[in-house]
């Protein structure tokens, strides 16, 4: 391997915020980066677009590159990609960490082409072997893990939120912030019009003691009736996984998971939900999880406390009867 193939030890984390808080996955990336940099002595840096008032909570990073420009005051995929690409090229870290959030999905591919650097997505584990980055990725809906070796001076890893531990550390001092200007970045073909905050639509699934949740296995909107009866018997709101809201069988405020709500009820009953990583992210911390799915290998059973492969169409009416008895 030639000298030019040696990776810099510095790691740049693409920090995420929602306008009022730095998002947790930022601190998960921080701890993954710290672990990786432990032996090499590399620096762990952050880049953040907009959210200048939040930079203070990034004190645990060795340095923060803050892109403070009207172009990034609202989220716009094109402006953010140009801005982060500019910072990445300038800072020239060995490794860039981002997440599989919308911003991460928007950024990673374009950055991979523009920097250029290889990209590994769906990452749940990270390590180094000599000069190589070794990433473990969750593919095929969590059914398989792939161990990927990246032999390159630069690499990008997109991490799945919730795969690494990491909390904000309020005791960390004020960060070393370098403000980055975007002069010469050029005009953008994309302009943000408005950010819409969550619309609860009357249902608050995050406050319930017990949730009756339904997934693709329900098959159709008409079939929801048996689930509604059970939910009513339990006095529980209906929750759903993404396929159900995408099909329009239930409205968006019912959705649990990465693009929906994060819930932590005392009991979570999952019917016909296989347990895609994006769904598990939103409900795995529930106190009690009972799952019903006809596939004995469904990933939902790895986080559930109790499970059954009995068909939901046979089980649910019986269960409603037991609850009403």
């Amino acid at each position: 391997m030639g000298e030019e193939n040696v990776m810099s030890d510095d790691i740049l984390v693409i920090a995420e915020h929602d306008g009022s808080n730095v998002v947790d996955v930022t601190f998960e990336m921080l701890s993954a980066a710290r672990e990786l940099a432990k032996d090499s002595g590399g620096k762990v840096l952050a880049a953040m677009a907009g959210g200048a008032a939040l930079a203070g909570s990034l004190g645990a990073f060795d340095r923060v590159y803050l892109i403070d420009d009207p172009a990034v005051s609202n989220y716009s995929p094109e402006a953010f990609e140009k801005a982060f690409t500019h910072v990445v090229r300038d800072v020239d870290p060995g490794l860039v960490l981002t997440s599989t959030s919308t911003m991460g999905l928007d950024l990673a591919g374009g950055l991979s082409v523009a920097w250029p650097a290889p990209l590994v997505s769906y990452v749940v584990g990270l390590g180094r072997e000599g000069d190589d980055v070794v990433a473990t990725s969750q593919i095929y809906g969590g059914k398989l893990l792939a161990e990927v070796v990246v032999d390159s001076p630069h690499a990008i890893c997109a991490l799945i939120a919730g795969s690494f531990s990491g909390q904000p550390s309020p005791e960390a001092g004020s960060p070393d912030v370098e403000t980055v200007s975007l002069e010469g970045i050029g005009p953008s073909r994309t302009s943000a019009l408005a950010v819409h905050e969550p619309d609860s639509g009357g249902v608050d699934i995050t406050a319930a003691d017990i949730l009756v949740s339904v997934g693709r296995g329900i098959g159709s909107k008409e079939n929801l009736e048996i689930i509604e009866e059970l939910a009513e018997a339990l006095g529980a709101p209906l929750a759903a996984s993404r396929p159900v809201t995408d099909q329009g069988w239930l409205s968006k405020p019912h959705q649990v998971g990465k693009s929906g709500k994060k819930v932590k009820p005392r009991a979570y009953l999952a019917f016909g939900i296989s347990g895609a990583p994006e769904h598990l992210e939103g409900m795995r911390d529930s106190e009690l999880i009972i799952a019903c799915n006809t596939d004995p290998d469904a990933p939902i059973f790895d986080v559930a406390h109790y499970g059954t492969t009995v068909d939901l169409f046979d089980l649910v009416p019986e269960l409603t009867e037991c609850i009403q008895a």
């Binding site: 716009s76 919308t102 929906g260």
Partner: peptide, 10 residues
């Protein structure tokens, strides 16, 4: 954008 937030753009 996750957690029920969305962005509209042109």
């Amino acid at each position: 954008l996750g957690s029920g937030r969305s962005v509209e753009e042109q």
